[in-house]
Each structure stands twice: as C-alpha cells, then as structure tokens.
C-alpha cells in the first residue's frame, strides 16, 4: 500500500460530479448531471422514482462505470481508485445485502475485522437499539431493525464518507429519529453524507445541500432555505363553496386563493405573508360572515418546491 492511498487529497470534496452521463441501451438514466458535495455536510438527493438517483450513487460507489463526464470521490476515480476508496467509504444499499441467516452481532464482528480501527460492534448495537436482537437471525428482524443494522454496517469502519440509499424507508417514527441522530452525528464528526430519500421533511431537517434531480438532470440545488425561499401561504378552514374569486379580488395584487380540498382554503403570495394580507383576508371573511378556523401562516415546504419542479405526477 502506498502512503498516498490513505491520505490522498485530504482537502478534496467528498464527491464532485461533472457532466455525468449514464445510458442503459437507448435509455439515458443520467444526462449531464453535476453536483459537488462537501465533507462534514449532508447532501440530500431528491427525485421521483426513475430520476437517476440510485444510478448516480452507484457510479460514485464504483458499482457502475460512467459513460461520460467525470466523478471524483474523495478526490479519486471511483472505479480506478476502488481499492483505496473501499475502506474509506461506507455504503448502505437500498436492498440491504445482508445474509438472511446472519445474526447482527456476528455480522458486525466480521465487518469490524475488515477495518483497521473499527467501532466496537457492541456500542453500535446498543446505540441503535439492536442489543436485545443481537442474536436474532436477520430475516426475523423487523424492517426497522434490518435498516438500522444496515446503517451500522455502513459506519462501523469509521468512514470519511457514507452513501445512504433511502435510510429511513419504512421506518417507524422512533427508528427514524434514531437514524437522524446518527446522521447528524456523522455530519458533526466531519463525515460527508450523501443521502437519497423520498421524505422531504428528512431532507429539510438534515441536509446542508438539497439536490433535486429529474430525468437524469439536476433541476436545482441549494440549501433548504434557499429552495423554499420566502414565499408563504395562509391556510384556513371554513364552510365549503366560498367565492374564492371574490376573495382574490379583495387581496393585494399577485395573491392567489383556492379551495383544496373542500372546506380548506389556501392563500398564496410570492413574498412573505405580511400583516396587510392577513388583515385583508380576515376583513373579507368578516364582511361575508365567514368564521375562518385553524387560520395559520406557513412558509412553503420543500415538498411544495419538489412537486412544483418535478411536475408532481406519480411515476414508478
């Protein structure tokens, strides 16, 4: 082993993707995607099914070769540098990849033996709530326990970078929070985290950088605050069938209002909701004898932005 393989480019970004292209036959799975993910930061890749998320991550992991563009992981080519990268990069696959008959304790013990300075398996089992199931065969663990074991396997070698493909898919709220604590801990410890997810709240809560991809291209990238912007909305509940056109006419220019679903009203503005808008809405309600219930002001969520940018149609 050359001394450089462990220490090569210590300041290189965790992942740097430039103009990545990947085709399967005539289908273009990734179409000129560029993305830069830092160390000590959580980068969330969001996108509808089939957007190219998993393909992109698997190219970074060295499982697939790019057809075009360049990918650097910790400064190295993920295929040519695979031997040097494998100890330094932790991977959690969507499909698990853990033998059905294996027991959590023995599985982590074996993985620990692959690494020079691993975490103690017992510590991971305890902190992830798996200590009581340490000797239960993998196939008899609950879905949430299986996911947490998979997560433990990804971090046991104390990696500099981890790829987590939908780490909280199918988890109950408690297990999700345990996973979020660990991911936040990775970030604090200076580990780069690349995360794909379908949960917008997860990205909003954890990510330093959110990259929305669709049709193999980067649609937009930014911090959650940049993406959700300042646009706001005002929601209330009242009897169904109010005259929303009349309401819009009473509001400042550029406002929109709609009823969706019946009895639930939302007023949207491109700027922050201000006192004048609130006054205008309540004045209109008073004038028309409408009692607005559950009246509240919200900012746009990442989910609103995502649906707006990706068209919102369901794909599988």
């Amino acid at each position: 082993m050359t001394p450089s393989s462990d220490t090569a480019l210590p300041d290189a970004p965790a992942v740097e993707i430039t103009g990545l292209v990947k085709r399967y036959g005539r289908t273009v799975a990734v179409d000129g995607l560029s993305l830069r993910a830092g160390r000590g930061a959580v980068t969330a890749i969001l996108g509808p099914n089939g957007a190219g998320k998993t393909t992109t991550v698997e190219i970074c992991e060295g499982y697939r070769r790019a057809d075009g563009g360049s990918v650097r992981v910790l400064g190295l080519d993920p295929v040519a540098g695979r031997r040097a990268l494998r100890p330094r990069v932790g991977v959690m696959l969507q499909a698990g990849g853990i033998p059905p008959a294996v027991r959590p304790a023995e599985y982590l013990q074996v993985l620990a033996r692959f690494h020079a300075r691993p975490l103690p398996p017992g510590l991971l089992l305890e902190r992830l709530g798996l200590a009581a199931s340490a000797r239960t065969p993998f196939k008899r663990l609950s879905g949430g326990q299986q996911q947490r074991l998979s997560l433990a396997a990804a971090v046991i070698g104390r990696p500099e970078l981890v790829f987590l493909d939908e780490p909280t898919a199918g988890l109950d709220p408690q297990a999700r929070h345990a996973t979020w604590d660990l991911i936040a801990g990775l970030r604090l410890a200076g580990v780069g985290v690349i995360l794909t997810t379908h949960h917008m709240d997860e990205a909003q809560r954890l990510a330093d950088l959110v990259a929305i991809v669709d049709h193999g291209q980067l649609v937009v990238a930014g911090t959650p605050a940049e993406l959700t912007g300042t646009a706001g909305q005002l929601r209330f509940r009242a009897e169904p069938g109010l005259d929303t056109d009349g309401l819009i006419a009473a509001l400042p220019a550029g406002s929109a209002a709609k009823e969706s679903p019946a009895g639930h009203y939302v007023v949207e503005v491109h700027d922050r909701v201000d006192p004048q808008l609130l006054a205008a809405v309540t004045a209109w309600c008073a004038e028309h004898g409408v009692l607005a219930q559950d009246l509240r002001i919200e900012s746009r969520t990442l989910e609103d932005v995502f649906l707006e940018l990706t068209g919102g149609e369901l794909r599988s």
């Binding site: 100890p87 690494h115 801990g185 604090l188 410890a189």
Partner: peptide, 27 residues
C-alpha cells in the same frame, strides 16, 4: 448527536488481508 459525533470521527483503514479472509471464512 454530539454523542454520536464523538465516536464517529473518521479513522478509516483496511485490515490486513489475511485477517479479512479469516473473518469471512469464519462467517
């Protein structure tokens, strides 16, 4: 989060090949 951060500080490295092979064969 801070408790995790303390144990998760990167310290990556591969074990010697014979140790890896022995561990996998044992499994």
């Amino acid at each position: 989060e801070a408790a995790w951060a303390q144990v998760l500080r990167p310290a990556a490295g591969a074990a010697p090949l014979p140790r890896m092979i022995a561990a996998q064969a044992w499994l």
